[in-house]
């Protein structure tokens, strides 16, 4: 796989009163071409800082970062990438088409038909002559996407692309991003809107306090679902006898709920219930969700740090 983004031991330090803080702390990351990559993390984890370094807007204090095979800061990269910042305000006095014209002029592009096409693509063909001040948030985000597509970028950085949008706008933006994958573009999405990321990303990395907490293919990361078995008419003795690892058992008035990992077969438990003349009401397999992974990872990481911080 050819890499669109390669980051090795990237460090960014800010000075503060309590000493230097590594906002980006020795990050290693690789994003392949044509991938939709989700960059996840709580607020202040270092997502935007990393993106800004990749865009050449701020400078790293250590490590190495290459975008499309070139070192960051190279103007040649800028012709092939696009960036959609989080909640940007465009020049409000300009109309949609004027905004596109302005950004096109920065690439020395003078193709009106292309701009119209972009408006159509983001569903703003009829609103191109309204000023930005008349646009809704979703429309502003869509015009932002349109401006980011002006140069047919190979690589797009989207910072919280669905942040603060209503559900319909959400879906619109998500579909636009999925279209990009079909066109073979690489998309680097920074987000904490996990449901979106889960639906569209091939791979994700979770960043917390400047460090990569975990990364990989979504399906690998989300391995490890659970079963929930519900039964009634179960004697209390049986409930006490279930002692599988990583299993939660709750029992009240003959009603039993067993929550167990899918690595263990549920058959033994179900058989036990049936043998005790209980009746199984439901067996529900529960897939692991990105949210669980995220919370798990962040919490685990923080606890590790607490423990490590005391040594």
């Amino acid at each position: 796989m050819e890499a669109a983004i390669e980051i090795k031991q990237l460090v960014k330090t800010y000075k503060s009163k309590i000493g230097d803080i590594n906002v980006v702390d020795h990050i290693d990351l690789e994003v392949g071409k044509g991938e939709i990559f989700g960059f996840l993390g709580p607020n202040g984890a270092g997502k935007t800082t990393t993106i800004k370094i990749l865009l050449g807007i701020i400078y790293a204090d250590g490590g190495d970062a290459r975008v499309l095979g070139r070192e960051v800061g190279d103007m040649a990269i800028h012709k092939k990438i696009a960036y959609l910042p989080e909640k940007p305000y465009y020049y409000e006095h300009m109309t949609g088409i004027e905004i596109l014209r302005f950004y096109a002029s920065l690439f020395k592009i003078k193709d009106e038909a292309k701009l119209k096409g972009l408006l159509e693509r983001v569903n703003l063909a009829n609103d191109g002559h309204k000023t930005i001040s008349q646009y809704s948030k979703g429309m502003q985000q869509r015009i932002g996407l349109a401006q980011s597509l002006i140069n047919d970028p190979e690589l797009l950085f989207l910072d919280e692309p669905t942040g603060g949008l209503d559900p319909i706008a959400h879906i619109e933006i998500r579909d636009l991003i999925l279209n990009m994958r079909e066109e073979g573009k690489t998309v680097f999405i920074s987000s904490h809107e996990l449901s979106d990321v889960e639906r569209i990303c091939d791979r994700v990395a979770i960043i917390n306090k400047g460090r990569i907490a975990s990364q990989g293919r979504l399906e690998d990361l989300l391995k490890g679902g659970r079963y929930e078995i519900t039964a009634s008419g179960v004697p209390e003795g049986l409930a006490k006898s279930i002692q599988e690892p990583d299993t939660l058992v709750s029992f009240k008035d003959g009603r039993l709920i067993v929550d167990m990992p899918d690595t263990t077969s549920p058959n033994a438990v179900i058989e036990g219930i049936l043998a005790a003349k209980g009746s199984v009401i439901s067996v529900i397999p529960r897939r692991k969700r990105l949210e669980d992974l995220f919370v798990e990872t962040v919490r685990q990481k923080n606890e590790e740090e607490k423990a490590g911080g005391r040594k």
Partner: peptide
């Protein structure tokens, strides 16, 4: 944040 949309071009 308009500056980012300009400087990344």
């Amino acid at each position: 944040r308009t500056i980012y949309t300009i400087l990344c071009k």
